[in-house]
């Protein structure tokens, strides 16, 4: 029996009168690579942002190792340090170098001494193939490189779960591969990941679990082999047909 890292229970989110997420329930276990797929506007990104508390939930709870993080007992900053997030638009700190981006969180949030933070940052930058660029500033490198640095920045905090919010959607096509390769290698290292993606090949071949969302609800979830070859729901089938033949 594997340990639940994250449990999402009855999560709902409304913006005004518009319900974006309706009664979402699912769990993330250690080592899971969960892909969340679905059409634009189905609430995938909002779900991820809720999990990282960047959006406040309207109702429901998020359990991190069994503890509710929305109840106010757990410091949201401490929780966020353990749940890494990679954004569609990278969000690298433009006042810092590549190395600084990967060190600042360790130093200021985790209070790790400078030398150790630097070593750890270099280790993860090396892992994503960006170590030679430590002196560059974010506006001096390409989109794919930025995203790899963003992944290293998240990894340097040594999170228990890594959330990816459409990590390749803002990239030029020729840069998508390098970022997916990094994510694949993380999956191989048994990193627990939750990935909102439009990359169906990644969802099918790399993830251990696929969640299909439509109109703010989880329409179907299961093993990728099952979802991609024999989906239960007609909506899932329709979506996959449309996106795979596009």
């Amino acid at each position: 029996m594997s340990e639940h890292i994250l449990e999402i229970r009855h999560l709902s989110k409304t913006f005004g009168t518009h319900a974006v997420l309706k009664d979402i329930d699912f769990t993330v276990d250690k080592g899971d690579v969960t892909s969340i797929i679905g059409a634009s506007g189905s609430g995938k990104s909002t779900l991820l942002r809720c999990i990282n508390l960047l959006e406040t939930l309207t109702t429901g709870e998020i359990l991190f190792h069994g503890q509710d993080v929305t109840a106010g007992k757990i410091n949201p900053s401490a929780y966020r340090a353990k749940v890494g997030m990679v954004f569609q638009n990278f969000n690298l700190f433009s006042n810092l170098t590549v190395l600084g981006n990967c060190m600042i969180g360790q130093q200021k949030v985790s209070k790790i001494p400078k030398e150790e933070a630097k070593n750890r940052a270099l280790y993860y930058l090396n892992k994503v193939g960006m170590a030679p660029y430590i002196n560059a500033r974010p506006d001096q490198i390409s989109g794919g490189q930025k995203q790899r640095v963003a992944i290293a920045r998240a990894l340097a905090m040594e999170p228990e779960v890594l959330l990816f919010d459409e990590p390749t959607s803002a990239l030029d096509p020729e840069m998508v591969g390098e970022v997916l390769d990094v994510m694949k290698s993380l999956a191989k290292d048994r990193m627990t990941m939750l990935v909102v993606t439009h990359e169906m090949a990644f969802a099918r071949d790399v993830s251990t679990h696929v969640v299909y969302m439509a109109d703010g609800v989880i329409e179907e979830e299961g093993k990728p082999s099952k979802i991609f070859s024999d989906p239960e729901s007609p909506r899932t089938r329709e979506f996959l047909k449309r996106i795979l033949n596009a």
Partner: peptide
């Protein structure tokens, strides 16, 4: 968001 996501207050 980037700063909050790595746990900064």
């Amino acid at each position: 968001e980037g700063a909050r996501a790595i746990g900064m207050n």
